[in-house]
Design a protein around this nucleic acid. Structure first.
Lengths: 113, 113
DNA sequence: TATATATGCAATTATTTGGTTGCGCAAATA
DNA sequence: TATTTGCGCAACCAAATAATTGCATATATA
């Protein structure tokens, strides 16, 4: 819980993903979030802290309550990493097939694509 | 390294993400992949194994060599999870602003957007 | 002011993770 | 056939992680 702290590590945990979904449309306090899970408030609070550290959520204090909200811009980082792969599953022309046939014809002298 | 084995946990590691990028366009053997990193062949092989377990990569044996290739369909699972959030950062009308003002006007009697 | 509530922080523990080392096996090669 | 090469598997280890428990602090409320 010390060193690696990036968006990808943050969303690796299913509870944290659920939290993100939960607060996507409405800010919530730690207690309100914890109520939605079986885990203890402290456990949830730790997850929130991790999400906050990598800026996936931001907070707003109102009195003694702290409302946590999603930071969509940070979510976009995952999307951005994913973007280059996107055409691999979208293209009707799937490059993977070509890679495969290249491999199979390897000994014949490779014809890239 | 035993129980939880899903796509999100798999891409949490930067080395594994790099491997995915590396083999996105061309299948490679474990040795060829390991050459691109400082880590040992065995370390890389473990990463590959994790990627294979959650089906982010598939393999094809040719002689004694094993070519690993990206499975774009599995990558799409991440994209699918991300999709609902996407409009939050794409919309020029950002819902987050509304949540915030809702909070600020809370004591006035909430008007849920 | 005294008490209850909302929350963060620190210490502790069990589990998971990432990496190394050593070994075995099957396929290529001399 | 003997040797080299490419890989996977198992055991082991240090570091990171997730969760619990206990405590401190600030803000409401009686």
């Amino acid at each position: 819980m010390k060193t690696r702290r990036d968006v990808f590590q943050a969303i690796a945990d299913p509870t944290r993903r659920a939290i993100l979904t939960l607060i996507a449309l409405q800010s919530l306090t730690p207690n309100a979030i914890a109520e939605q899970f079986d885990s203890s408030r402290q456990a949830i609070s730790k997850h929130i802290q991790i999400l906050a550290e990598c800026q996936l959520v931001s907070q707003q204090t109102i009195g003694r309550e702290i409302y946590y909200q999603l930071n969509p811009a940070k979510m976009k980082e995952v999307s951005d990493w994913l973007a280059p792969f996107q055409k691999l599953w979208e293209d009707r022309y799937n490059r993977l097939d070509n890679v495969l046939s290249n491999l199979k014809n390897k000994e014949n002298g490779k014809s890239e694509n």
